[in-house]
């Protein structure tokens, strides 16, 4: 049997509490399978019938980012957390830097809002045909491709000492996206708009360079490298504006 200790909360405004569950082991089991078992048969370790644990998930192959939670204290995806690799009892908690909706479900819309603020897109004239796009050297594509694998899962924000529910820092994941768009040959034409947004309050200057983010990223996105380079670019950009060169 697997022993799980789960931090629960019935609704956004209610108080959190903890329940323990025992779940039978199956082959190649992950945390999602264990939670599915609880959903099917929500009985606690003490034999008490309770409401099933609610959590978010979709792809189950660590691509969509939905099932991110704290597992034994570490923010990661439940689908790729194999039970065999985890120390028991397994402690599941919701992410702490985002508002809890119910049980392990949190609201990460703040991350998507940040993408709006940073103009995290390539502005094109329209989706119609204007012929082939610009060439992009392979090494440049390979440099930023990892950034385009960001799942907006929130692991990097969870571990960032400068990001909290109340702070205005937009955090590493959204900021790194700026590098992606500034590298694309068309996106590069609108580079100034994004750097301007990064200059604002809660932007790149709020990064304390703790470097926790890069350790926490399940996709090994070189976040600190991206943030460091962007920081320099923003400084140069600011100076160039100041001196008008």
């Amino acid at each position: 049997m697997i022993h799980l200790i789960i931090k629960r909360q019935d609704s956004p405004d209610s108080k959190p509490y903890t329940q323990e569950f025992l779940v039978p082991v199956t082959k190649n089991m992950n945390v999602v399978t264990a939670l599915m078992e609880i959903k099917k048969n929500p009985v606690t370790k003490d034999g008490q019938m309770v409401n099933p644990v609610a959590w978010d998930c979709n792809c189950l192959e660590e691509v969509c980012g939905a099932c991110t939670m704290r597992i034994n204290g570490k923010a990661r995806q439940a689908c790729s957390a194999l039970i065999a690799d985890l120390e028991q009892p397994i402690r599941l908690e919701p992410l702490t830097k985002f508002p809890v909706m119910r049980d392990l479900i949190v609201d990460r819309s703040k991350m998507f809002e940040a993408l709006k603020r940073l103009k995290a897109w390539v502005e094109i004239d329209g989706s119609f045909d204007v012929g082939r796009g610009p060439r992009l050297p392979r090494h440049k594509q390979e440099e930023v491709y990892p950034i385009s694998k960001c799942m907006t899962c929130g692991c990097c924000l969870e571990v960032c000492p400068n990001f909290s529910k109340d702070s205005d820092f937009i955090g590493p994941a959204p900021i790194a996206q700026v590098k992606l768009f500034n590298t694309h040959p068309i996106g590069n034409m609108q580079k100034a708009d994004r750097l301007e947004a990064l200059k604002d309050k809660g932007g790149i200057a709020s990064c304390g360079n703790a470097q926790n983010c890069v350790e926490a990223c399940p996709k090994q996105i070189p976040l600190t490298d991206a943030l460091g380079k962007l920081n320099r670019e923003v400084n140069i950009f600011t100076l160039s504006r100041f001196f008008d060169f």
């Binding site: 119609f128 204007v130 796009g133």
Partner: peptide
């Protein structure tokens, strides 16, 4: 080609 212009990170040739 439109997706490429939108910034989709396609794998490239030399």
């Amino acid at each position: 080609y439109a997706l490429d212009r939108m910034g989709m990170m396609f794998t490239r040739t030399q």
